[in-house]
Amino acid sequence: MRKIFLSILCVLTFFAAFSQDKQLVVAQDGSGDFKTVQEAINAVPDFRKVKTTIFIKKGIYKEKLNLSASKKMVHLLGEDLNKTILTYDDYAAKKNIFGEEKGTSGSASFYVYGDEFTAENITFENSSGPVGQAVALWVAGDRATFINCRMLGFQDTLYTYGANSRQYFSKCYIEGTVDYIFGSATAVFDGCELFCKKGGGYITAASTPDTVKYGYVFLNCKITGDAPEGSFYLGRPWRPYSKAVYINTAMSKVIKAEAWNNWGKESNEKTAYYAEYKNSGPGAQPEKRLTWSHQLTQEESKAYSLDNIFRGWKPGSN
C-alpha cells in the first residue's frame, strides 16, 4: 500500500511541476498558443502563485499592452532582443475618442502593474517619434526585473511609476532626449547603456518621495549618444526630493560639465540628492560639478549595495 501511495505521489509531483513550468508561446504566424501578446497575458490566471513564462517569438507586435495587478510573477521571454519588438505610437498630445489629449500617462505602449514581473530579451518601443512625451514602458509593480532589454523612444521613454516599487534593470539599453528615465520608483540600472539622442536634454527626472532613501542608482553603466557635446544633464528634480547616484559609470562628452539642473527652483538644491563616485570619461568632471551635488567617499559608496537599496529583495529571485 505504501508503494502505491508513493507512486501516486510521484506522479502528482511530476504533473504539478510540469504545469508550473509550461510556457505560453506567442507567434504571429499561428505556430504558438496565441498570435498576440495581450491574449497571452490575459490567459495568465489571476493571482497565480508560481511563475508563468510567456515566450514571444520574433516579430513586431503593435499592441497597446496592459499587465494588470492581478497578473503576478509573469516572465516575458523574447526569442531575439532586436527582433522581438513590442511597440505602439500613442503620445501625450494625441486625442482619445472623446477628443481629449491622452497625456503622458495615457501615452504608454506597455503598462506593468503586476508584482514580480520579469522581461528578458525584449524591445519596448514608442514609435511615435519626437512629438513630445511618449512613454514606451510604464512600470508600477513591485520587484520588477528587466534583463537584456531595450527601451526606445524620445521624451519620457521609461516611466518608473510606482512610488513604493523596486525595479532592477540589468544590461539594458535605454535611449531618449528629455527626461527619458523618470518617475518615483527605487530603480537600479546595472551595466546599462544610456543613449542620449540628438537635441539635448536630461537623462533622469526622478520624483522620489521624501520618505524613500534611494531613487535612481546607476552602477557600472555607460553614457553614449549622438547628441552634441555638452548637451545633456545627468538629471533634474521632477519633485523636490529627487535622488540619483552614478557609480563607476563611463560618461561620454555629451554630458555637461555641471551635470545637474535644479529645474528653475533654487529650493530644489536643498532637497534633491545627486551624487557620483569614481565615474570616468570626458563627461566625468567632478571639479566642475555644481556645488550642491555630491562626490561620494569610498565609505559612503558602500551604502549603495543591492541589499540596502532594495531592502532585502534579491533581483533574479522572481
Rank of each mutant, 00 (worst) to 15 (best):
D90Y: 02
F195R: 14
F15C: 07
E287I: 11
T52V: 07
G316V: 10
S305D: 00
K256H: 05
I122Y: 07
S68N: 13
K71H: 11
F15N: 06
K265V: 08
W263R: 02
Y214P: 14
K265R: 15
P130W: 00
D226E: 02
Y173L: 05
K288S: 11
P237M: 01
S317Q: 12
E101A: 00
E39V: 03
L6S: 09
Y241S: 10
D29Y: 11
S317T: 15
H75D: 08
Y88S: 05
D33G: 06
S105G: 15
A144Q: 04
G176P: 05
V37R: 08
L306M: 04
I4Q: 10
G32K: 08
V139M: 12
E229N: 12
L234F: 09
S242D: 05
I255A: 05
T52L: 09
T36H: 08
E276F: 14
L81C: 01
T186R: 10
S301N: 14
Q20C: 07
R2E: 11
T13Q: 13
P209Q: 03
V74T: 00
F34T: 03
D90E: 10
K83R: 12
A244T: 07
T118S: 11
Q38Y: 00
C149A: 11
Y161P: 01
E287T: 13
P286Y: 12
G32P: 01
E116T: 14
V188P: 05
L194S: 13
A275D: 12
D46V: 11
K51R: 14
A93H: 10
L137F: 12
S184W: 15
V11E: 02
I8N: 03
M251F: 08
A140F: 14
F189S: 06
D33N: 13
T271R: 03
T249L: 02
C196H: 06
V25L: 07
G200R: 03
L9V: 15
V44P: 14
R166T: 09
I181E: 09
G30P: 04
N308C: 07
I8A: 06
P282K: 12
I97R: 02
S267N: 14
K278G: 01
Y91H: 00
K64D: 06
G230P: 01
F146H: 09
M1D: 11
G264K: 06
L290Y: 07
E229K: 15
S105K: 14
F98H: 04
I56R: 01
T177Q: 15
M251T: 00
K71E: 05
Y241T: 04
F110W: 13
D307K: 15
G191P: 05
F117Q: 01
F98W: 10
F218D: 06
